[in-house]
Design a protein around this nucleic acid. Structure first.
Length: 322
DNA sequence: AATACGTGGCG
DNA sequence: TCGCCAAGTAT
């Protein structure tokens, strides 16, 4: 079975590897290390996040603060979230922290064991197994998926079918380089909004390249993003400000100012307004300040607040206070 | 299967 | 400017 596919795609494998040697991004720091923990950090950060953002703002500071799995496990959740501040999808950080605390020494090596850890699904488990432990398994991320849709000329595929194709095209002889090459090809050549087929090593065998590659896969229709209105009240007393730590799923663990659905008292002083765009709604908030003491909340100085993990919306409010 | 979940880069 | 969407997971 495996040798059949190897034979079937050997020409593809050869040209892909040649392309990777000259055009690949071999200098990415998580490709230069063999440390499974560092590779794990990179894989979690890179979920739904551009390489540029992780590379320039988050990967190195996080690893400097938490150089090892043990350092992460022994930190506080506030510290971990603070290093994640601005990266978004904060559940990733809390899951990684929880996983670190559950591990005695190092990450497990098998796809199956990796998938049992919080925050590691099928895609990340394959990536860690492939990149940290050189396990001969294919990866399947957004880049690889797009290549598969186009190469095999499919408009829509279920997850199962995508994994089947990933295994079909996989180069068992050069698993590590093949996987990295596929990521780079999807990121640099076979791009979502720009298929540069004339630069693609898989061009001759690609179905969609012969027609309209940008229409593979079929684009999904998306609903309009709803707007949510809120009033945010900065409650202040003696140069300190009231904050509470969020406990519901949205921005869980982060600290923030007090929010109301809308239309609180009118005698309050207005500080300003803000718009924050989230993935599933847009927040339009008016921000007020009120002098009082309410022992429901914890109070912090501006200096202390800046050391707490905050959402981008709350950071905008902090800047109104400066 | 569909939806919630952040933020910012880029065309 | 504005919408797309980027190395997905959990429920």
């Amino acid at each position: 079975m495996a040798s059949f596919y190897l034979l079937k795609h050997s020409a593809v494998h050869t040209t892909l590897l040649q392309w990777y040697e000259t055009e690949g991004r071999q200098e990415l720091p998580w490709r230069l290390t063999r440390d499974p923990y560092s590779i794990w950090v990179s894989e979690i950060m890179l979920q739904q996040t551009q390489v540029k953002t992780v590379l320039e703002r988050f990967y190195f500071p996080f690893l400097e603060r938490f150089p090892t799995l043990q350092d992460l496990a022994h930190a506080s959740e506030d510290e971990v979230l603070k290093m994640w501040e601005g990266l978004g999808y904060y559940t990733r950080a809390r899951h990684m922290y929880r996983a670190a605390q559950s591990l005695q020494h190092e990450l497990p090596q098998s796809v199956h064991e990796l998938m049992r850890l919080p925050g590691i699904g099928r895609s990340t488990a394959h990536a860690i197994a492939a990149f940290a432990y050189q396990t001969p398994v294919p990866i399947l991320d957004a880049n690889v998926k797009r290549i598969l849709y186009r190469f095999f000329g499919k408009k829509r595929l279920a997850e199962k079918a995508l994994w089947d194709l990933a295994y079909q095209l996989f180069d068992e002889e050069h698993p590590f380089e093949y996987n990295q090459a596929m990521m780079d090809l999807g990121s640099l050549v076979c791009r979502a909004r720009d298929a540069r087929c004339h630069h693609c090593p898989l061009h001759s065998g690609c179905t969609a390249a012969k027609t309209d590659p940008l229409n593979f896969p079929e684009k999904k229709q998306k609903r309009a993003v709803p707007i949510r209105r809120k009033d945010i009240v900065v409650i202040t007393c003696k140069n300190r400000y009231a904050l509470k730590q969020r406990t519901s799923r949205f921005l869980k663990g982060l600290w923030g100012f007090i929010e109301y659905e809308t239309n609180t008292c009118s005698d309050e002083k207005k500080l300003g307004a803000l718009i924050q765009k989230y993935s599933h709604f847009h927040l339009h908030a008016d921000v007020y300040i009120r002098h009082e003491y309410d022992d429901t909340y914890d109070y912090f100085t501006l200096e202390e607040i800046c050391k707490l993990p905050l959402s981008q919306a709350d950071i905008k409010i902090v800047n109104m206070l400066k």
